[in-house]
Amino acid sequence: MAKCDRCGEQESMPYQCRLCGGTYCSKHRLPENHDCPGLENWNDPGGVFDSGFDDSVDQTGRAGSSGLADKVPVDTGPGGFFGYFRGNVAFTLLALMWLTFLLQYLVAPALGFPAYSQQWFDLFTINTHEPLAVWTWVTSVFAHGGFGHIVLNSIVLYFFGPVVEKRIGSAKLVGLFVAAGALAGLAQVGAALLTHPAWYGEPLTGATGSAVLGASGAIAALMGVLTVLNPNLRIYLYFVLPMPLWLATLLFAGYSIFVSSVGGIGAGGVAQLAHLAGLGIGLLYGAKLKREGERAPRQLKFGGGGPGGPGGPGRRRGP
C-alpha cells in the first residue's frame, strides 16, 4: 500500500508520475490532476524546451527577438546535447565541484599557486584578506578543503539536489545553491571580521585570518527547503539509520549551535555559522515554496555525515 501525495488516500496499485516522480492514486495520477510542476516544462508544442537559463524562449520553443539566444543559439530539446542538462543541473553542480577540486590541487599548484598559499586562498576562498573579491563568492562554493570534505558534500548533494530540482526547477536550484553558499560564507567571514577587525586586509597566517570554502552552506539550504516541505520525510543516514528529516535537521542545527557556543563560530576548523546561515536561508525559502503549494517526496536514502561533515563548508584559519 502506498499513500497518494495529493489526497493521502491509501492505494494498493499506486501510479508514479514520470514528470515529478510523485506517487498518486488513480484519481490524481494524471499530471493535470495533481498540479504537477513538470507541466510547466512540457507545455511546449514546438518540441524544444526552455532550458530554464534563457527567459527569451517563447511558447513555441524558439528564442525571442532579444537575449543571449540571438547570439548563441542553443537547442535544449531532447535531441540536442544541452537537452541532457534539462532536469540534471544538480549533477552538473556536482561535476563542477570536482572540476574545481582538480583546479585547486592540480592545476593551481602547477601554475605557481601552491595549495594554502595566500594566492590560493584569494582564488578559491572567501577570506578576511580579500572579502570583497566577488569571484570568490562563487568559487568558494565549489572549492573544498580536502578529499573527505568534498566526498561528504557530494554524497548529500547527490541525493538532495535532484529532489529539490524536481520541485523548483533547474534555474532556481542553481540560484539557491550559489546564493545560499555565497551568503553562508560571507556570514562566516563577516562575523570573523566583526570580532577581529584587524584581520581585514592582512595575509592569512597560522595566527590571523579566516577563510571559508565548500558547498556545505549551500547543501544545508537544500536540507532546509526539504525540511519545510516535508518535515516527516524519512531518510536513511548511512543507508541504515532511519529518521524523519525534521529530526536530522534539528540535530544538525543543535550540534552547530552547541559547538559554536563552546568553541566559537569556527570550532574544530568547521565554519559553524556558515552551516546555520545556509540552513536558515533554506528554511525561509522552503516556507515560501510551501505557501506556493510545493510538495516533497515521502522517503529518501542518503549517506554521509550530513551537510558539511568534517571540515564544514570551509577551512577556517586563526583562533
Rank of each mutant, 00 (worst) to 15 (best):
M1D: 07
A2H: 08
A2D: 15
K3E: 13
K3H: 01
R6V: 12
R6G: 05
Q10N: 15
E11L: 05
E11P: 02
E11T: 15
S12Y: 03
G21P: 04
T23R: 12
S26G: 15
H34I: 08
H34E: 02
C36M: 11
P37M: 00
L39R: 13
E40T: 10
N41I: 14
P45F: 04
V48C: 06
F49E: 15
F53E: 08
S56Q: 12
S56H: 11
D58I: 10
A63W: 08
G64T: 13
S66D: 08
D70I: 09
V72A: 11
P73K: 11
D75F: 05
T76R: 10
G77N: 01
P78H: 10
G79W: 04
G80E: 06
G83D: 15
F91A: 03
T92K: 05
L93C: 13
L94K: 08
L94T: 08
A95Q: 07
A95L: 13
L99I: 14
F101D: 08
L102R: 07
L103R: 00
Y105A: 14
Y105F: 15
V107T: 01
A108G: 06
L111I: 05
G112P: 12
G112T: 07
F113T: 09
D122R: 05
L123I: 15
L123H: 04
F124I: 04
I126Y: 00
I126N: 01
T128V: 00
A133T: 06
A133L: 12
W137L: 13
V138W: 01
V138H: 01
V141L: 00
F142T: 04
F142M: 01
H144N: 10
G148V: 09
G148E: 14
H149Q: 13
I150M: 12
I150L: 09
L152K: 06
L152Y: 04
S154M: 04
I155W: 03
F159A: 14
F159P: 03
F160Q: 07
P162L: 09
V163D: 02
V163Q: 12
E165N: 05
K166V: 02
K166M: 00
S170F: 07
A171L: 12
A171H: 06
V178T: 12
V189K: 04
L193M: 04
L194N: 05
L194Q: 12
T195W: 00
W199F: 07
Y200C: 04
S210C: 07
S216V: 01
A218I: 01
A221G: 10
A221T: 01
L222K: 15
M223L: 14
L226K: 13
N230R: 11
L233F: 08
R234I: 13
I235N: 02
L237V: 12
V240Q: 15
V240R: 04
P242Y: 00
W246K: 11
G254E: 03
G254F: 06
I257R: 10
S260D: 09
S260T: 14
S261G: 15
G266V: 10
G268E: 07
G269T: 07
A271D: 15
Q272F: 02
A274Y: 03
G278Y: 04
G280K: 03
G282A: 06
L283R: 09
L284G: 12
G286V: 09
L289G: 02
E292Q: 13
Q299C: 08
Q299V: 14
G305Q: 10
P307D: 09
P310E: 09
G311T: 00
P313S: 14
P313V: 03
G314S: 07
R317V: 08
G318Q: 07
